[in-house]
Structure formats: structure tokens, C-alpha cells
Amino acid sequence: MTTSLITGSTSGIGAAFARQLAADGHDLVLVARDTKRLRDQATGLHDRHGIKTEVLAADLATDGGTDAVELRLADRENPVDLLVNNAGFANKGPYLDVPVADELKMLKVHCEAVLRLTSAATEAMRERGRGGVINLASVAAFMPRGTYGASKAWVVQFTQGVAKDLAGSGVRLMALCPGFVRTEFHQRAEKSMDSIPSWMWLDADKLVAAALTDLARGKSLSIPDPRYKVMMGVVKVLPRGLLGGVSSKTGRKGGPR
């Protein structure tokens, strides 16, 4: 039986990963800030799929929270076979309207926590000669989107770099870059989604299924939808000035996951 650890597991893409992995027979370590929601989620998945569930309440914006998850990932007696670094958030408002403290908090969750947890997980996985890490980025990583886009661009570059360094070790790493997904993510950031065309919305469960398939195929980057693959191909050839203008209109008011 394999064990998967998912951060930000109680909602959105994290919850979709938990459902899919539980259905596939993985035992789960569920990580989020809300203890009650974690326990409710763990009970539901255990009852439905007969798997073992473990809850770990932790706020990855704090050193103590990241320390606790890091310690769990380093446990050689109860190894984690798959880490899904899903926890993340967006800030409301344009640059300079957002307090610097909130921007630094984002970097702590999106970058520092991802670095520390990936390091703890892959060190133990390399010793066993197997394992996988999925780091949640975003298609925003390929567009000028301030701190959010920059942090997700870091996730992509970091993950692909580590994947190259660990090639042949049995440990796989992949950056997952979704587009717009109907989750609590946008609600928490108080984003208005009225201007987003219906065809741009993705289903979280289908996204996760595609992502797990890409990981099994050894991909280090997953954009799990043909529509977004085409869009990102166009982004590569657009002039940076034009791209910046488009991004600013959809940016913090309606950015992708």
C-alpha cells in the first residue's frame, strides 16, 4: 500500500487529489489548517474507500507548520510515496494595494514551503529508489502576473531543475499548471469570475486524473488540458508588452489557479 501526502487537501484541487488517490487505494496524510475539516475529510475517505487516513493540521505560512510536515515526510518508518504540494492562495488587489507582509506570506507558502517539503520528501524517496512529487504551479507562471505569477514561475523552474538532477534515481517530479478551476481558491481571494468564458473553466477531478497520468509517463511539466496547451503555445510567441496588457486585465481579479 502506498501513502500520499497532500497539502491544502480539504478543498479544490487538493480535495480532488485526495478523492482520486483514495479511490486508487492510496493511504493518505491530509494536511491543511482547519482541523475539523481535515477530520471530516479523513473520515469520509476512510469510510468510502477503506484506506488509512492521517490528519496533520499545519499552516505552511509559519515555520512551525512547515516544520511539522517536513518531519512527517522524513519519517523512514512510515514513508510517503507521493507528495502533492497543493497549498496556495492569491491576494486581492493590484501591486502596492497589497501589504508587503501578505506578499511575503505568499512567497513563504508557494516557494519556501515547496522547497523545504520537496527536499524532505525526495531525500527519503531517493534512499528507497522510488517516489513522486507534484508541485502545483499555474499557467500564470508563463505570464507577467506580479508576485503570484512569479512564485508559480519559480515552482515550474525549481521542479523541472530538480527533476533533471534526480533523473535515474527512481524519483519523479512534476510541476502541474492548471488554468481556471472552480474551487474555493477564487472565493477566498474575493475574485469576480463573471468575465471568464465558460469554456476556460476546468473540472478538478478530470484535471487530477490527467495530472496523475502525466506523472506516470515521466513528464516534468503538466498542462492538463488541450485548450490551455494551445493557449500557452500562443503565449510563447506573443510580444511581451501585449502579453503584459492582457495579463493585467485578468490578473488579480480573475487569475488562473
Rank of each mutant, 00 (worst) to 15 (best):
L215F: 07
T213S: 10
V139I: 15
V155N: 04
R19E: 07
T159R: 05
V98S: 14
G132C: 08
R128T: 10
G12C: 12
S9N: 10
A167D: 13
A101Q: 14
A204T: 04
F180E: 05
W154Y: 11
R128A: 04
Y228P: 11
G132T: 01
T159D: 09
D225I: 04
A32V: 07
A175K: 06
R252Y: 07
A209R: 12
M200L: 15
Q160K: 15
N135G: 06
D81T: 01
K229S: 15
A42E: 01
M231F: 11
D81R: 02
K164P: 09
G241H: 11
V230K: 08
P256L: 15
A57Y: 06
D194F: 11
D225R: 12
V80M: 00
A211V: 06
L104Y: 02
G168P: 07
V246T: 13
M200R: 13
E112K: 11
L215W: 01
M106D: 03
L173R: 02
T53R: 05
V235L: 08
T3Q: 12
T250H: 14
A90N: 06
T118K: 05
I134D: 01
G88L: 07
E54Y: 01
V69K: 01
R126G: 02
I6Q: 04
A141Q: 01
G241Y: 01
V162Y: 00
V139L: 10
M231T: 15
V230R: 11
F180P: 05
V234P: 05
K36I: 08
G251K: 10
G65Y: 01
N91Q: 12
Y148G: 06
S195Q: 13
V235M: 10
A137R: 08
M232E: 08
T3K: 09
D24C: 00
Q41C: 11
K219N: 10
L173Y: 01
E112F: 09
V230G: 08
M200G: 03
A32Q: 07
D34Q: 09
Q41E: 12
N91T: 08
D67N: 03
A120Y: 00
R145P: 02
S247G: 15
A23Y: 02
S4Y: 05
L5F: 06
H110A: 04
P226Q: 13
S192A: 15
A211Q: 02
A87K: 00
L202W: 03
A57S: 13
L243G: 14
E70T: 02
L238N: 07
P197T: 12
Q187E: 13
I51V: 13
L202N: 05
R145E: 14
A209K: 15
V235G: 09
A204Q: 00
F17I: 02
V208C: 03
L5H: 06
R37L: 11
R33G: 04
G131N: 03
G131Q: 03
D40P: 04
K105R: 09
G254P: 12
Q187P: 07
C177S: 09
A121F: 00
L215V: 06
G233H: 12
F180I: 12
H186C: 09
V230P: 00
P94Y: 06
N86Y: 00
D67F: 04
V109K: 03
Y228E: 10
V84E: 03
V69T: 05
L117Q: 10
A74D: 07
